[in-house]
Simulated scan of single mutants.
Amino acid sequence: MLKKVLKIIKEAGSIVLFYYYKNISKKNIFYKVDNSPVTSVDYDVNDFLIKELYKLTPDFPILSEENLPDIKLCKNWNTYWLIDPLDGTKEFINKIPEFTINICLIKKNIPLFGVIYIPYYKTLYYSHFGKLFKEVQGCKSVIKKNIYNNNNFIVSRSHYDLKIDTYLKKYKYYSKIKLGSSWKFCLIAERKAKCYLRYGNTGIWDTAAGESILNASGGCIKTFSGKNLDYSLKKSFLNPGFKACI
């Protein structure tokens, strides 16, 4: 199944890049209730991923940011796919090539197997049996659990919160890295940064694949009250603020 999922996500990346180089027109950009942008590319990739994942595992339901059902219909899902067809839509629109595609298999409220693909750089991260792998231009390597030695903090390029400045006052020396999409989790897993601070709500599709990858690297995600993120689909599709750290 791993090889097939990696093939699917790379093919989805080719769809994204086709539109990226073609330049998407304003008539193909729409806005959701919360004023966040969504494009025809999000929908096209969403349809492709759902079709291919259903072929692969017809018994597993699929939850996507662009295809949300009534949460009451999901309460008994034990195993399901959680996907974000285009994470970093603002970056995609503004020609900042940090956007990703996220796929994660959730089982019993745990992000079991996650894949994040950065199409522009043809870079793939995925967790498999507790190990973390990175593939660049087809060359695969294992990411080792080295000790980090930096005070680099990753913050959202599009959703910065002044509470982050208050949190960082405890550190004498630090640097902030602005980045869009779930790529943030991958850099932490590689020990290129210490922590990703996020205040305010995110969708569970924004964090699931990243959490799986981070867990495989020895890191974790916790809310600011010390709790795990909830993928049980019992109450909400949203996460509270959190710290993703090594």
Rank of each mutant, 00 (worst) to 15 (best):
Ile116Asp: 02
Lys32Pro: 04
Gly226Cys: 10
Asn228Asp: 15
Ile83Leu: 02
Tyr21Cys: 07
Lys55Phe: 04
Glu98Asp: 06
Leu53Met: 02
Lys140Trp: 01
Leu82Trp: 01
Thr166Ile: 07
Lys90Val: 03
Lys90Cys: 00
Tyr125Arg: 03
Tyr43Met: 15
Ile154Gln: 03
Leu238Met: 09
Asp206Ile: 08
Val33Asp: 14
Asn35Leu: 14
Tyr120Ile: 06
Ser232Ile: 12
Glu65Gln: 10
Tyr120His: 08
Ser175Phe: 01
Gly180Gln: 08
Met1Arg: 12
Val115Thr: 13
His128Asp: 08
Ile101Glu: 13
Leu187His: 08
Ser156Asp: 15
Val41Tyr: 00
Cys220Met: 10
Lys145Ala: 03
Leu86Ser: 09
Ser40Glu: 14
Asn228Lys: 13
Thr79Arg: 09
Asn149Lys: 13
Ile9Tyr: 02
Tyr19Asn: 12
Ala193Ser: 14
Thr202Asp: 07
Gly114Ser: 04
Tyr196Gln: 09
Ile106Thr: 06
Ser181Asp: 06
Lys192Asp: 14
Lys140Glu: 08
Ile50Tyr: 09
Phe133Tyr: 15
Asn239Glu: 06
Leu105Val: 11
Phe185Thr: 15
Phe113Trp: 03
Phe153Ile: 15
Thr123Met: 13
Arg198His: 13
Lys145Met: 01
Thr57Ala: 11
Cys104Asp: 13
Tyr196Lys: 04
Leu229Glu: 08
Gly138Cys: 07
Ser40Met: 11
Glu66Gln: 03
Leu105Lys: 11
Ile83Phe: 01
Phe133Cys: 00
Met1Val: 11
Ile62Gln: 04
Leu86Val: 01
Lys192Thr: 06
Tyr31Asn: 10
Ala244Asp: 07
Gly88Phe: 10
Lys108Asn: 10
Tyr196Met: 07
Glu11Asp: 12
Leu197Lys: 02
Ser212Gln: 10
Thr57Trp: 13
Leu49Ile: 07
Gly88Asn: 07
Tyr120Arg: 02
Phe133Arg: 03
Phe18Gln: 14
Asp165Ala: 11
Ser225Thr: 15
Ser212Lys: 05
Tyr173Ala: 10
Leu105Arg: 12
Tyr171Glu: 05
Asp70Cys: 04
Ser181Gly: 03
Lys234His: 13
Phe185Arg: 12
Gly200Ser: 06
Glu190Tyr: 02
Asp59Met: 01
Lys95Phe: 04
Lys145Leu: 00
Lys192Gln: 14
Leu86Asp: 03
Ile15His: 10
Ile213Met: 01
Lys140Asp: 05
Asp230Ala: 06
Lys235Tyr: 14
Lys4Arg: 15
Phe113Leu: 14
Gly200His: 02
Lys234Asp: 08
Lys7Ala: 11
Cys220Phe: 14
Ile24Tyr: 08
Lys172Tyr: 04
Lys55Ala: 02
Ile93Ser: 03
Lys90Ser: 04
Ser232Asp: 05
Asp230Cys: 12
Lys163Tyr: 06
Cys74Met: 10
Lys90Gln: 08
Ile8Met: 03
Gly138Glu: 08
Thr223Ser: 06
Glu98Pro: 00
Ile106Val: 09
Leu197Asn: 01
Thr123Ile: 09
Lys72Asp: 13
Asp230Met: 06
Leu105Phe: 03
Cys195Gly: 00
Phe48Ser: 06
Lys26Trp: 02
Ser225Ala: 13
Ser127Ile: 06
Tyr125Asn: 10
Ile29Asp: 12
